[in-house]
Design a binder for these strands. Structure first.
Length: 422
DNA sequence: TCTGGGGTCCTAGGACCC
DNA sequence: TCTGGGGTCCTAGGACCC
């Protein structure tokens, strides 16, 4: 059996751990730049606040209902996530972290002398007690059914955080009660198509033949269809290695119209990609730089910059990647007063750093480069990111995010740790 | 005026080869 | 006027997830 552990309203719950006065009150968390609402507590959901609503549109309503508003605090959420995953990993040798707030656990052969339900409840209790984050567990024979079970677990209090689909009757009952659009892998478009074919519930979908599903919803549809029947076919190495890494941001206000500022932003995005590459011990040979004007504004001319490059030798060297991406940006720069609202860097064609295919025509002194990079990385590890950086990364920061409602770095900055009064 | 960021997989169609 | 058959590789775009 496979379990899915899902943190309840994760970002809102993280804020509540260090601010218990928020318990029982509506809470929302905003995206970068305080742009959209990306997370909501149950109370906020009940007020009808939609996922992805632009903040400026909801502002008045939030004030009226005294909703607590937070900018995203990814240092806090990332650290809390790490704690949750650490506790979970003590219960199974086979844990797959699926997102910042979810993980799949292989439960086969575990919890000896205990029922599956009791084992699940013990896990849920341990995480909640150890981190303050409430979690729900769904258990089923496949990942898709485990996901489905966790939905029910969240919906109905009676399950006490653990919902199991382990018999044919329960599976049928669950599938009949589940709108097709709520199935993992069926998005808005597919839901519409399903409704067109008069498929309303997951059960209706299961009743179709494999060839029919293949015809209208391709192989991914068949995978979901099989998973719903209880045939496990989403394998774990589908979900581990990253094949591309992206760092991108929207810029505050109108956007950026100066090349120097955009260069600085792109240099910093590239450095972040290099850091992420090194964290997973890999190198890339594909590099993309992009920038574009706001897709919402019809009153200005829209511009798009999009450049790809294949590097001769895979690398994760910050300086090499930064100089390459900045050069690409300069070459494809279109000024004309264009206001760039968003930019980013993607690295792809990723391979392990132990398996580099070198090139006969390489002109870089790789050994020297590696020695310098190792020295810089050591300094940055000790003193924080970007203590030593490439000059073009700059100090301007005018492209930086606005986040007016951010909470403290309760768990990752000694100066912001909560004081306990005596 | 303001409207996020980071991923994955699949398919169709074009360019090219013999 | 008529215009083959069988491949591969790459890319853009669409769908999905959190």
């Amino acid at each position: 059996m496979i379990a899915l552990v899902d943190c309840n309203n994760f970002y809102a719950s993280c804020e509540r751990v260090f601010n218990p006065a928020l318990n029982g009150k509506p809470v929302v968390i905003l995206s970068n730049n305080d742009g959209c609402i990306i997370a909501r507590s149950n109370e906020a959901k009940m007020l009808g606040i939609g996922m992805g609503t632009p903040f400026y549109q909801a502002r008045e309503m939030l004030e009226k209902h005294q909703v607590a508003v937070f900018s995203s605090n990814y240092n806090l959420y990332g650290d809390m996530s790490r704690r949750v995953m650490m506790l979970l990993s003590e219960f199974t040798p086979n844990l797959i972290q699926y997102s910042i707030d979810e993980a799949f656990m292989d439960l086969s052969g575990l919890g000896e002398g205990e029922t599956l339900r009791d084992y699940g409840k013990r896990i849920v209790r341990t995480v909640t007690r150890g981190t303050g984050i409430p979690v729900t567990m769904g258990i089923g024979p496949t990942k898709t059914l485990a996901k489905l079970a966790s939905r029910f677990g969240k919906k109905y209090k009676g399950y006490e955080g653990v919902c199991i689909i382990d018999t044919e009757e329960k599976r049928e009952k669950a599938l009949k009660a589940c709108d097709i659009g709520d199935v993992w892998g069926i998005g808005r478009r597919h839901r519409k198509r399903m409704y067109y074919f008069d498929i309303r519930t997951a059960w209706d979908f299961c009743c179709k033949s494999e060839s029919w599903v293949r015809k209208y919803f391709t192989v991914t549809g068949v995978r979901t269809w099989k998973e719903l029947q209880g045939i496990d076919c989403i394998v774990e190495d589908d979900m581990t290695d990253k094949k591309s890494i992206c760092t991108s941001r929207s810029f505050p206000g109108q956007g950026i119209n100066r090349l120097e500022v955009l260069e600085e932003a792109v240099a910093n995005f590239t450095a972040a990609c290099a850091r992420k590459l090194k964290e997973q011990d890999s190198c890339c040979s594909g590099l993309t730089v992009f920038a574009y004007t706001s897709r919402f504004r019809e009153d200005i001319v829209s511009y798009q910059i999009n450049r790809n490059i294949h590097l001769q030798v895979p690398t994760n060297d910050t300086q090499e990647l930064v100089s390459t991406s900045v050069k690409m940006l300069r070459e494809s720069w279109i000024g004309n007063g264009a206001l760039y609202k968003k930019a980013g860097v993607i690295v792809w064609d990723i391979c392990p750093d132990t398996a580099i295919q070198t090139s006969l025509f390489d002109t870089v002194d790789r050994e020297k480069q590696a020695r310098l990079a190792a020295a810089i990385d050591a300094i940055n590890r000790k003193n924080g990111h970007n203590t030593v950086k490439v000059a073009v990364q700059g100090f301007d920061k005018s492209w930086h995010l606005t986040c007016e409602h951010i909470s403290k770095q309760y768990t990752t900055n000694l100066n912001e740790v909560i004081r306990v009064k005596t």
